[in-house]
Design a binder for these strands. Structure first.
Lengths: 218, 218
DNA sequence: TCTTGTGAAAACGTTCACAGCA
DNA sequence: TGCTGTGAACGTTTTCACAAGA
């Protein structure tokens, strides 16, 4: 199998979305330049990425929209729909359980369960998804064929919860929304989405730019 | 002013959190190795980053925890508390309005307003934050001194809403949660947090690893 | 002529090896 | 001796320049 660099994977995922949008507009052909413009990157970058797995466009013509979609889907998500669980049925977990953006990705993944430790919440439903007791994670995850988890628990219990869900030996992927990076065995895929860090990056660069501008003004 | 690379800024922000945690534990000194371990990176990386703005540790000793915190805060966020607005009072916007993780960053930023176009919601409060009519964005943003926006609107209206809020000329930073990358003038700082892309990266690499493992097993 | 595909170069980021100090 | 600071080496990612093909 090929070894794909992480920034390339990120862009391939976005190419798929962008090209699917072109298809919805009824487009039959698309150029690397058009894809690049839609994403704010360079056309050469798009061509490098797309040609990584072999030639897929036609020189002088462009890329066939439907063919390109099939190609990207085959490379990125050739498996059947993956089942996800959201662990932590608080505000953020609840918002994700009924997040409309996930609808677009039917066939790739689907949220099938919520977990929490609050007896008040267990048994309820959010967005049509049932809340289970985190104590029953082992059994329910097995029953529902869950191997990937979205983690939306408070920072203070992140490591503890991660240890618990990994003790089942089933889970091989975690998308963590807490600002604490848990320690996981290297065979588990962990990505962190830290909202507070992203916000601070915006703040830092806004200030940086103001400064640069002032300097220029002289 | 210095030019700081983006991965460096991200790590500096995390050093601040990690070192503040060490301070809470009553630590007076900390080594680059300890910081590195807490973040799963190399100690040399920590030293490179921390020495970027001049020497701040003591050779043979380590870093003074309180001094290091002051130093990082001075580099990253020397300005007064920034006011943020959340545009889009749906599930995700609501969850962020009452997100407890923001409490930790008091003094750096604060959410002061929500905006939506749904007359049903306008006038309500979420997490103590009032929902205003997006039509009044210009006036309210000026009144509340908002220059940074968290965007949690549906993908289909992302560009339209961005154009509207930028037309005030006040806004110079956007943290966008929609999976569509809006086009903004280059003087506006834009960061995208695309939950669906992060999820797909996890799925891709989980599959990749399974394959690699199988190969190894032979 | 138009647009893709690609080796080579440049830019960027990380790691190493060790010098410098307490 | 122990730990920081840093130039040089290394690895990775992006960009360039142009060859190849419809």
């Amino acid at each position: 199998m090929w070894r794909v660099a992480e920034p390339t994977v990120e862009r391939l995922i976005q190419y798929l979305r962008v090209v699917e949008a072109f298809k919805k507009e009824g487009r039959y052909l698309v150029s690397s330049q058009e894809i690049a413009d839609a994403m704010g990157i360079k056309a050469t970058q798009v061509r490098k990425d797309l040609s990584f797995f072999g030639e897929v466009g036609k020189r002088g013509v462009g890329y066939n929209v439907s063919k390109l979609i099939d190609h990207l889907r085959y490379i990125l998500f050739p498996s059947k729909e993956q089942k996800l669980a959201i662990v932590g049925a608080g505000k953020l977990g609840g918002a994700l359980a009924s997040y409309s953006g996930f609808e677009e990705d039917k066939g790739i993944y689907r949220v099938v369960a919520l977990f929490d430790n609050d007896p008040q919440k267990i048994g309820d439903e959010i967005g049509g998804i049932k809340i289970y007791d985190i104590k029953d994670f082992h059994d329910i995850a097995e029953e529902l064929d869950v191997r990937i988890v979205i983690l939306t628990v408070p920072a203070s219990v992140t490591q503890e919860v991660v240890d618990h869900i990994l003790s089942t030996g089933r889970i091989n992927g975690i998308l963590n929304f807490s600002p604490v990076t848990p320690i996981v065995p290297k065979e588990v895929v962990l990505y962190n989405v830290d909202i507070t860090t992203e916000l601070k990056k915006v703040l830092f660069y806004v200030r940086q730019k103001r400064k640069r501008k002032k300097k220029k003004d002289f």
